[in-house]
């Protein structure tokens, strides 16, 4: 039989981990996992960028592309509920896997995805978020009056709780805003020092653990395309997505390590800052659940958050066992998630 060509749109430039390995590995895995039935070709970022992926997928141009709910929050309130809970983990592989299992097994999430016209396969996670700043941040007093860029609602609430001011700056303007002194720092993974060349302006990494950014669908599949595939082919896509996702998570960690070798000082946070952050996280879960109900009409938000926390714990344990071997993580996701899914009905 002749292979079917899927159109992939990574939506980012070639040196970004969201392209290589997230899509290059996916492209390599696809024919292997599908016995040669599926092939693919890549569309450039100038054709469809990540912020245009919603249109790209719904127009039918893109068969498989990454989907960031942050750009289109109104589409996926159920996914945002857990996706926005940044502070729950300190292990990116575990967060990616927990997210994958949660979304695959969450009926309300699947309903909103169906309405949006995409089929969910996999999530991955950024490396741990810290504060990258132009002035040193060690304890609570240093946070006072700081203007910090944030990229998500929970980070925003944390910055406010620490007595600093959260700011929204376009990601492309972060460098200029930092070097102008319009902002004092940015809450993100240290990998950004490399990806956005912030090392000329950022002098300090405050190594306080601020969790992860895991609200990402790595390989969202156009629902029409998904319907047209056989159950085996669907599983091949899901497994390929997971395999490339764990590699990309590793790649983020490598870049972070590289960034920390640059000319930046890494500052261990004081105990009061760590304690205040822990206190914030506990109380904020209630805030997140209440907001989800009031603002977006999500039912049983607290229960859903509790279930997600259980999954985070579960995957934390599995990840510890894997001890940094990402192929073992991919294997575990296949065993715990994909082998239990009935692909003749899933995501259709």
């Amino acid at each position: 039989a002749q292979a079917r060509d899927l159109r992939l749109a990574p939506g980012v430039v070639q040196f970004h981990p969201g392209y290589n390995p997230l899509y290059t590995e996916f492209q390599a895995q696809l024919p292997k996992q599908s016995d040669g039935k599926l092939n693919s070709r890549m569309l450039g970022v100038e054709a469809v960028s990540i912020s245009e992926m919603r249109t790209g997928l719904s127009s039918g141009l893109v068969d498989v592309g990454p989907f960031l709910p942050a750009y289109f929050p109104a589409d996926l309130p159920e996914m945002n509920l857990v996706g926005d809970l940044a502070f729950l983990g300190d292990d990116p592989q575990a967060m990616g896997a927990a997210m994958t299992e949660y979304i695959v097994t969450c009926g309300d999430c699947q309903a909103e995805l169906r309405k949006l016209g995409i089929s969910y396969t996999s999530s991955y996670s950024s490396n741990i978020y810290h504060v990258l700043s132009t002035k040193p941040i060690k304890d609570m007093a240093d946070m006072k009056g700081m203007r910090l860029r944030v990229g998500g609602p929970q980070f925003s609430r944390w910055v406010e709780a620490m007595g600093a001011t959260p700011v929204s700056t376009p990601v492309t303007e972060t460098f200029e805003a930092l070097s102008q002194g319009v902002i004092d720092g940015t809450v993100t993974s240290s990998a950004d020092i490399v990806s956005f060349r912030l090392d000329d302006t950022v002098g300090y990494i405050s190594a306080i653990n601020l969790g992860t950014y895991h609200s990402v669908i790595t390989h969202a599949v156009n629902a029409k395309t998904w319907k047209s595939l056989s159950a085996e082919e669907r599983k091949a896509i899901a497994v390929s997505a997971t395999m490339s996702g764990v590699l990309a998570t590793d790649r983020w960690a490598e870049i972070s390590a590289e960034a920390e070798q640059k000319d930046v000082e890494i500052i261990e946070p004081s105990e009061d800052l760590v304690a205040a952050t822990s206190a914030f996280v506990e109380s904020d879960l209630g805030v997140a659940a209440a907001q989800a109900g009031e603002r977006y009409g999500i039912e049983k938000a607290a229960e859903k958050i509790a279930r997600f926390r259980q999954l985070v714990d579960k995957w934390h344990a599995i990840s510890e066992e894997a001890a940094g071997d990402s192929s073992k993580m991919a294997e575990a996701v296949k065993r715990e998630v994909w082998d239990k899914v009935d692909f003749s009905t899933y995501g259709v």
């Binding site: 942050a70 289109f72 929050p73 109104a74 589409d75 944030v150 998500g152 609602p153 925003s156 609430r157 406010e160 959260p166 700011v167 929204s168 603002r295």
Partner: peptide, 19 residues
């Protein structure tokens, strides 16, 4: 379509309607 989903963007912690 944007009206139907009540499209908004997150502005810090505030969902700002853009539909």
């Amino acid at each position: 379509e944007q009206y139907d989903i009540g499209a908004y963007v997150m502005s810090l912690d505030f969902p700002m309607p853009v539909w």
